[in-house]
């Protein structure tokens, strides 16, 4: 995944993306965990944030990992390690928050959505998100597994539990399908022909994915070629050429094909 640096400290990878809309003015910030935590408390938008993500009521009483706990745990994990360690983690994809209700302004919505698209592209692949989530949990509690709350498993986006899902016959959001994949597979195997989709795929998304794959392949191919030439230049002791090639490689390597 592409590393975007924190807007505030400029050092840490930004993992929290905040879109604030106050009086029809949009401000976007990309923050690292610690700066986000700091900002949130000093600017007083933590309450909004928790409200927005539906965690306010349950934050104290419940065993779900609220955003607050996520960030606290993140800070602890970060401090436990000696600075150089990778404390970078990503929250479940609810890391984009809108403030001030939904925007009345048409352009604003478009603007926001463009910004969010970046995020969506990344979350494109359900498996990738799933992996990221699992990775989160390990990094949150790298040493002591007893810290981990014994959870009633809840969807991290809509906080639906399996019990509720069963009672209701409905899931809360699309993320529930990831959280309860195993249970749902069981159900599907019983009531459906199979637990594997064989029908239509979203066609535009598929086209876009193929286009990205193509771009990525081209970039990788180019990198390979440049590296080969670099090796040749070094072997031939053409140091000036080698320096130029190194610069080129740097540029090509830092080309981010969205979706990575």
């Amino acid at each position: 995944m592409a590393n975007v640096l924190c807007d505030v400290c400029g050092e840490q990878a930004a993992t929290v993306f905040v879109t604030k809309i106050v009086n029809n003015e949009t401000t976007r910030q990309r923050l690292c965990e610690s700066c986000a935590r700091h900002r949130a408390t000093t600017e007083g938008w933590m309450q909004h944030l928790l409200q927005d993500s539906g965690h306010l009521d349950t934050a104290q009483t419940d065993d779900i990992m609220s955003f607050l706990e996520h960030t606290d745990a993140a800070l602890e994990a970060f401090m436990d390690q000696d600075g150089s360690a990778e404390a970078e983690f990503e929250l479940p994809s609810s890391t984009i928050f809108n403030f001030g209700g939904f925007p009345a302004d048409e352009d604003l919505v478009d603007e926001m959505e463009e910004a969010e698209m970046e995020e969506d592209l990344r979350a494109d692949d359900f498996d990738a998100v799933n992996e990221a989530l699992e990775a989160d949990q390990h990094q949150l509690f790298p040493h002591d597994h007893t810290l981990r709350p014994i959870p009633t498993v809840r969807c991290s986006k809509c906080s639906t539990t399996w019990d509720r899902l069963r009672q209701d016959g409905r899931v809360g959001c699309s993320h529930c399908y990831i959280v309860f994949e195993e249970q749902l597979r069981d159900v599907m195997n019983r009531v459906q022909r199979a637990a594997e989709h064989t029908g239509k795929h979203p066609r535009t998304a598929e086209k876009r994915r193929r286009r990205l794959e193509h771009l990525r392949a081209r970039r990788d191919h180019r990198l390979e070629m440049l590296n080969r030439r670099l090796q040749e230049a070094v072997a031939a002791e053409k140091y000036e050429d080698a320096a130029k090639l190194r610069d080129k490689i740097k540029i090509v390597a830092s080309t981010i094909v969205s979706g990575e």
Partner: peptide
């Protein structure tokens, strides 16, 4: 597609409120 896209997974296909 440019606005978050459909809820879709390779396993369960088009995701719906009622599984």
């Amino acid at each position: 597609d440019q606005r978050g896209g459909y809820a879709y997974s390779n396993v369960f296909g088009y995701l719906t409120a009622c599984p």
